[in-house]
């Protein structure tokens, strides 16, 4: 390999002229958006803006779901181009994105995190485990899906859901706000 290709600056410059690595944006299914609009109206929630701050909590996952949620942030899926971003503090968050079956040992931490969030907020259960406890629902250590502790607005099934499916879900929230507001 030529020497200059191994340096950072020439490669950064190359990045300015080459095509972007980013995937085209996924389109959220219309029926999901409509269902969310209905939820929004039923709860008479104040509309959130065109961007959403997401706080993720693992309530018992095998970490497969976390891998794909993290992958939403890579340059190929690039969730920030949609006005979506992950935040560290639940106090800054509009969306609580929860994975895993709800373990008994995580219930309190999940509830405390949810309580720190300002209203209005969305709660999203991502992954088959979060939907209804998945494979783990019959255990002494598991309560079931996330709805065993919190009212859930959106379910994203999959084991794990792909980054594209996760993005679709997040975009459905934004669409619902636009349509419902």
């Amino acid at each position: 390999m030529q020497g200059w290709r191994r340096l950072l600056w020439p490669r950064l410059a190359q990045g300015l002229v080459s095509a972007p690595l980013t995937d085209p944006p996924p389109v959220p299914p219309e029926e999901v958006v409509q269902a969310l609009v209905a939820r929004l109206e039923a709860a008479a929630q104040t509309r959130l803006g065109r961007s959403l701050a997401i706080r993720q909590v693992d309530a018992g996952s095998c970490n497969g779901c976390e891998l794909e949620i993290n992958a939403m942030q890579n340059v190929v899926h690039d969730l920030e181009r949609f006005g979506l971003r992950f935040v560290a503090s639940p106090r800054h968050a509009d969306v609580l994105l929860v994975t895993g079956p709800l373990t008994r040992n995580m219930r309190e931490a999940l509830l405390r995190t949810a309580e720190c969030m300002p209203e209005p907020k969305w709660v999203v259960a991502a992954g088959d485990c979060a939907v209804d406890g998945g494979s783990f629902k019959d255990s002494y250590a598991v309560e079931g899906g996330i709805d065993a502790a919190l009212p859930v607005d959106l379910l994203i099934p999959g084991c794990p859901p792909t980054p594209t499916q996760l993005l679709e879900g997040m975009l459905a929230l934004i669409e619902a706000q636009r349509a419902g507001g």
Binding site: G60, P101, T103, N105, F136, D138, S139, A141
Partner: peptide, 11 residues
């Protein structure tokens, strides 16, 4: 740790 205990062995 232990927060993620799902009872794998029991299952």
């Amino acid at each position: 740790l232990g927060y993620l205990h799902k009872g794998q062995i029991g299952l």
